Simulated scan of single mutants.
Amino acid sequence: MNQNLSAYRIFYTVAHAGNISKAAKELYISQPAISKSIQKLEDGIGCKLFLRSSRGVTLTEEGELLYSYVKNAFETLTLGEEKLHRSIELGVGHLKIGVSSTLCKYLLLPYLKEFIKRHPHISISITCQSTNDTLKLLEENKIDIGLIGKPDNTKNIQFDYLEEIEDIFVATKDYLRNLKMRGVTKSHILQNSTLMLLDKHNMTRQYIDDYLQINHIHVQDSIDISDMDLLIEFAKIGVGVACVIKSFVTSELADGTLIEIPLGIPIHKREVGFAYKTQLKPSKSLRAFIEFYRGYTP
């Protein structure tokens, strides 16, 4: 932009008023100052913007074109100011959260339900990604906070522990009965079943792959699934053995829909919690959310 904002403000006001005298009163500046600013703007652009007469001023064809854009710009600025004032008065803010679809449904939603009740004027955006992708978005400042499994490296982030989660393998009674009929012992179920796991980009999958490798469990047949809910549903119809988070299938375990497969060496529990960057000053919305979840028990 070759001209400064004040020159366009004068141009906009004169065009809207249709009279330099009226514009001078509205802007609280002298008529000569307005005429000088218009002349400078016309010289800078290289064309006439107004036709002057005894009754006032009218826009030229070029002036009409410029005015259409300048009008939109100043109306947008005015709208922005109004929204800002309204936000300040109501305590309106915006909070961007990153979370996996699994943790979103089972862990985040109870927190959000109560937080929204207490802070109805804070708008919330949720980006559902894996923990790895959430950490990347956090690093790139594209989200304010993430609900993640605790990473190995917590440098530059504050990790606030929420709870532990436990990974288990489950299947239906019928599926396990069929394995037994084929002579598969309890200690060899994983090696001889169709194993259903989250896809390889997921941090949970990486954790389970490490467990299988360390314990020399060689999987013959596996299916990659992107969603924990689908893993649970596929297990319930007997497709195979699914690796799921125990607290997410408590009702299925209680009523016998799914059976937990005993492991010689249990999978270590993992920590999940909220994480945000320590290098940036948190916004009011983020501060409100941090204060909320630190003192709330769902």
Rank of each mutant, 00 (worst) to 15 (best):
S6C: 06
T13D: 02
N19L: 04
N19P: 10
A23R: 03
A23D: 06
K25P: 02
E26M: 13
Y28A: 11
S30I: 06
Q31L: 10
Q31V: 12
I38A: 02
I45L: 15
C47G: 10
K48A: 02
K48I: 01
R52Q: 13
T58V: 13
E61R: 13
L65R: 14
L66C: 10
L66H: 01
Y67T: 04
F74W: 06
G80L: 07
E81I: 14
K83H: 14
S87V: 02
I88N: 11
I88Y: 07
V92W: 09
G93I: 01
L95Q: 00
V99G: 00
S100D: 06
S101L: 01
S101K: 02
L103K: 06
L107N: 00
L107S: 03
P120W: 03
I126L: 09
I126S: 00
T127S: 09
T131K: 01
D133E: 15
L135K: 02
L138P: 00
L138M: 01
N141Q: 13
P151N: 07
D152R: 15
T154D: 07
T154H: 09
K155E: 10
N156W: 10
I157N: 09
D160M: 06
E164V: 04
I165F: 03
K173A: 07
L176W: 02
L176E: 07
G183Q: 11
S187R: 12
S187C: 06
S187G: 12
Q191D: 11
T194V: 09
T194W: 08
D199H: 13
Y207D: 02
I208T: 05
D209G: 01
D210R: 15
I214E: 14
H216S: 15
H218N: 14
Q220C: 10
D221V: 03
D227Y: 12
M228N: 12
L230W: 14
I232P: 01
A235R: 03
K236Y: 01
K236Q: 13
C243N: 07
L253Y: 05
A254E: 07
G256S: 04
L258G: 01
P262L: 00
K269M: 12
R270S: 13
F274Q: 03
Y276G: 03
K277G: 03
Q279W: 13
K281G: 01
P282H: 04
R287I: 05
A288W: 03
F289E: 00
F289R: 02
E291M: 11
F292V: 01
T297F: 12
